[in-house]
Design a protein around this nucleic acid. Structure first.
Lengths: 232, 232
DNA sequence: TGACATTAGTGACACTTTGTTACTAATTCG
DNA sequence: CGAATTAGTAACAAAGTGTCACTAATGTCA
């Protein structure tokens, strides 16, 4: 009988295969679209998320940026990790573990890399089960954090109208917002400041241009909200 | 010159070492405490998070449950992933990539596994930089989600007083809540129902016991809140 | 030119939510 | 008994939100 402490035993580290799978999202028309790449061949699924293994010494976010750029052609405006996935569900490259990352980019018409295409979230082609799960999680994460990250502002040019901004929020959240309420809340947030320029967009009254200029303010200490729903 | 499509090239999957690092948190006195295990020896840090590599075919959450139980002695009440960490910062087992998981457990006095000990979050011993980052992230994640997960209820016995519940929320959030506001919000949430039992806890008026009994309700469609702070 | 459609922006009202104070209720301790 | 202690609630003020209706500035087109 061997003598050794019951805990901790120095754990044995096994080798696994790791992939970084990136969900590149972009406002397209009035919904969100995801960027998919054509799969080499063979399998039932012809499309997959752009993915790769991280290079030696490369951080996960760096890898995600590189992978996104390799399919998109440009660097995305925002990257956020959405979790690690290791269930048995098949990965296109048979990686044991995937790190899912969501990337946001403004609408770009510049030619995508050959083999890459935009798909509306409501009309995605069949994906491997793991990629399907990563996409769903990515959308959930984005919707949960829009109001806590400057995501919307990174999808707009340096100056923009409040209607532009509201449209981005509506696309990211997937639902309509009320104009007056939106502006009141924005006013109270000190996140934007008006410029003295106006933009005339064809018909209708010209709109004032604003710029993203967050001013320091303390996080309000709100009570608990019990936003816990039994159906979610 | 070889002929092949410019994209996608079937990526090469490299082998990496993977660890699941678990932050077991528990209410202790009036703060949160984390469970650490003694490190075999040698290094500067004498303590680390419980961790291990997942077994072949084992899911990440399953691995986290096993690891938590191996240090805690019992299964934790709730597990949630907090992200993957792959920066160069040293891991006690030199894993290339760590998946951080936070576990919550009610206060347990049952003997921990030898070598494991509770540390108040405000008085943690030196940890490897990666473990330090995982702990910080775990606390942030818990505080961000208390009101969207039944976490607090899993830390209480089947029936509990509203003061018990409020105390758990205060420990999880790390700040005081107002009694009347807390109860009003709870009332509106349809998450608990009263039993016809009362508990007399020595001094003071006896408190009614409640049980967790969430009733279906639709998620309210609130507008955007712009909870975006420049200092966070 | 002048009515109309269209988009931008605001005022005002009702209603809800929240923070706070102050109270009442039921128990133990001395 | 009365004081201390904990539970629970009423009520008010302030802030936040949903909504409607309005004004403003432009292009379109008969």
């Amino acid at each position: 009988m061997r003598e050794r402490p019951s805990h901790p035993v120095k754990p044995v580290v096994r080798k696994t295969t790791l992939a970084v799978d990136v969900v590149v999202l972009s406002p397209q028309a009035d919904t969100l679209a995801a960027l998919l790449v054509r799969t080499p061949a063979g399998g039932r699924e012809r499309w997959s998320l752009p993915w790769d293994a991280p290079l030696p010494g490369e951080g996960l976010e760096d890898a995600a940026g590189r992978i996104a750029e390799s399919a998109l052609g440009v660097t995305p405006a925002l990257l956020e990790q959405v979790g690690a996935f290791a269930d048995a569900r098949r990965h296109p490259g048979d990686a044991d573990v995937s790190v899912g990352v969501v990337a946001l980019t403004p609408h770009v018409e510049t030619a995508l890399v050959a083999g890459a295409e935009w798909f509306s979230l409501s009309a995605l082609p069949p994906l491997s089960p793991r990629h399907r799960a990563i996409v769903d999680r990515a959308v959930t994460v984005v919707r949960q954090r829009v109001d806590q990250s400057p995501a919307a502002f990174r999808l707009l040019p340096p100056t923009f109208t409040l209607s532009d901004l509201q449209a981005i929020y509506e696309i990211l959240l997937g639902r309509r917002l009320h104009k007056a309420s939106f502006r009141r809340a924005l006013q109270a947030s000190y996140l934007v400041e008006p410029t003295d320029e106006w933009r005339s967009e064809g018909r209708g009254r010209p709109a004032q241009l604003f710029r993203y200029a967050p001013r320091k303010r303390r996080g309000a200490r709100r009570g608990v909200r019990f936003d816990l729903f039994t159906d979610s």
